[in-house]
Amino acid sequence: MNAPLPLHDAPAQTAPSVNALPDDGPAKISARNVSVFYGAKRAIDDVSIDVPNDYVTAFIGPSGCGKSTFLRSLNRMNDTIAGAHVEGEILLDGQDIYRSGMDVVQLRARVGMVFQKPNPFPKSIYENIAYGPRIHGLTTSKSELDGIVESSLQRAGLWDEVKDRLADSGTALSGGQQQRLCIARAIAVDPEVILMDEPCSALDPIATARIEELIDELRGRYAIVIVTHSMQQAARVSQRTAFFHMGKIVEYGTTSDIFTNPREERTKDYITGRYG
């Protein structure tokens, strides 16, 4: 009778490739093997990344590379698009946001979004800010609501400009003021993450500079992720940068490294303007 063959250790499991920096601490958002489809078309292909809590993270890349699609997956905004679906796992503080029974309204309060074009409600400046806290039951009195409106506008750097005309329509403000109003509206429900999808692309240089200053002021209070078509803006406002190309993350690292010492040739080609 032949002796039994010796047992061998099972092969070690290979950990998934995750874009993360070791000194960033626990991730606020963790994406694992995420793919996003519009019908049969795959727009995001197997993306894994950890988004830190204390830094501004920029997503850069050429038009159509998937950066906005991936951003929208972080608070399930793609749910509003017919035929869109997401595969993989996206965790917010370790909890899967795509799990069955997830309260999507509450998720979007925790993970707010500021869009490319300012979109204030056709309501007064006051009501633009008060709407979210009111529907989420965050206040029990008019004085509390007044306090949230004022503090949100203060944080958005808009209070001094509008405090004497809170009853005016939010749509009557300038473009830059409207965008800060939208940021104040997102802040008002006490979010943990703010997603910004090219928030300055419709603004003039002066308004853009004010929004960039605001992003820097908000850093550390919220985890911030910004999609930008402007590499100069990414370099100014972010501390971490992910370069997307054809639905994948090509490279992720500190913003200074991405712009001065990229590891990947495709990143270098994009940063130096060879394509994009």
Rank of each mutant, 00 (worst) to 15 (best):
D103Q: 14
S256A: 11
N78D: 12
G157I: 00
F121Q: 05
K67P: 14
R108D: 13
A242K: 05
Q233L: 09
A82F: 13
S63M: 13
R185P: 06
S63E: 07
S68W: 04
Q116L: 03
I129C: 00
S30H: 14
T57N: 03
L181F: 00
D146E: 15
S238I: 15
V250D: 02
S35V: 15
L173I: 12
L166C: 10
A156M: 04
N119I: 08
N19W: 12
K248W: 05
R108A: 09
I29K: 01
V18R: 15
R110M: 09
I129S: 00
Q106N: 09
L138H: 10
P6R: 05
L181V: 00
A20T: 12
A3K: 10
T57R: 01
T139D: 01
L7Q: 12
F70P: 05
G147K: 06
A130D: 08
I148T: 11
K163M: 11
V250R: 13
A188F: 09
R180S: 06
T171W: 03
T69F: 02
Q106E: 11
E127Y: 01
I125D: 00
S201C: 03
L138F: 08
S30F: 12
I129A: 00
I90K: 08
Y270T: 13
N19M: 15
E265D: 03
R72L: 14
F70G: 03
E192N: 10
G170N: 09
T139A: 07
R32H: 01
D197Y: 01
L74K: 05
S169I: 10
M196V: 04
G247A: 04
R180P: 08
D257H: 04
G175T: 11
C65G: 06
P6G: 00
M102C: 14
R110L: 15
A20M: 13
G176N: 09
S238C: 07
D160E: 05
L5D: 04
K41E: 15
Y222P: 03
L71Y: 01
A167S: 13
D93T: 10
M77P: 01
F121M: 05
P11F: 04
T272L: 08
Y38L: 11
A207G: 01
R180Q: 04
A43T: 14
T254A: 07
A184M: 05
V149M: 04
G273C: 14
G176Q: 02
I206L: 02
F121C: 05
Y98M: 02
K67A: 12
K67W: 15
A40Q: 07
Y275E: 10
